[in-house]
Design a binder for these strands. Sequence first.
DNA 1: CAAAATTAAATTGCACGCAATATAATTTTG
DNA 2: CAAAATTATATTGCGTGCAATTTAATTTTG
Lengths: 161, 161
Amino acid sequence: MMKNDRDAVETIEQDDGALALGQQLCFAIYSAAHAFNRTYKPLLDPHGLTYPQYLVMLALWQDDNQTVKAIGEALSLDSGTLSPLLKRLEASGHVRRKRDRKDERQVLISLTDKGRDLKKEAFGILQEIGKASGCSLDTLRGLTAELQGLTENLKRLRAAE
Amino acid sequence: MMKNDRDAVETIEQDDGALALGQQLCFAIYSAAHAFNRTYKPLLDPHGLTYPQYLVMLALWQDDNQTVKAIGEALSLDSGTLSPLLKRLEASGHVRRKRDRKDERQVLISLTDKGRDLKKEAFGILQEIGKASGCSLDTLRGLTAELQGLTENLKRLRAAE
DNA sequence: CAAAATTAAATTGCACGCAATATAATTTTG
DNA sequence: CAAAATTATATTGCGTGCAATTTAATTTTG
């Protein structure tokens, strides 16, 4: 016998449809992340930045002179990812790395003039990306908020284990 | 003459807000993708699968015996990513790789018994992920549709260049 | 205060992801 | 039909991500 509508809505059924790539939020997110990456690439290439490096720059434009740990918390990345990335950002002249005098364990990351100047270009990049998304500002804001909530839920549940 | 302080501050702060990590959809998507990845890991590890490998399995559960190219189109991945990944999936016993007799350029990927059997477990994984997301099925469906639209827009604009 | 525990970065090893190139098979074309 | 163009897959090199380990500095504690 058929389930009623309410059950159908709140239960993931064990049929092929449920496993279809096209129905999975995780795949939609995976695809959107790659699409964004590919859209950013031609905009960032002229500045010698990769997308994750650009995220670090965003963090530093907000708050200069942060520790590796602070940047890692902002981006949810660990030193295994950040240490080599920051060395490349230093090699390309965008940031400086300096041991903290007060606590020699820490490394402080600060913007060079070149890194600071790049911020002006970032507004143009933002415009381009906004156009490419083809969404209204309201839609973008709504999506962003929903995804932030989702990410929080996923993190909370992992922490609770 | 210089603008007064109030004007200067408001103008800069507006711009800064636009570049804030917390306001950027691309970063929300980047973070959600990583959060999903981390949530999937403990669920997939026991089966010896990574998340991208799991996506390939989803594609094959929908449609067995696909070419590398077809899988690449389904997942937006090229042979540079898929060739080694598929070799690892073959090494772990989940799929078989076989040259197509009709067209020796193509390689057909098909499920082994082990790979097919894993589909049963996938429904349980799906349940776990659904729970971890903390969203209603309606919310999940809505988000998925919006992200698919966004991804389409980004792809279309890249193709138009 | 010295030993133990904790903390911050860096390093190593492995698996993507992608650009660029290489190789081999098939199709197009002149 | 043979040369040229196209197509499918594989390979190489580089930059993430992340788990696990290492090293050095600081904090805790017995």
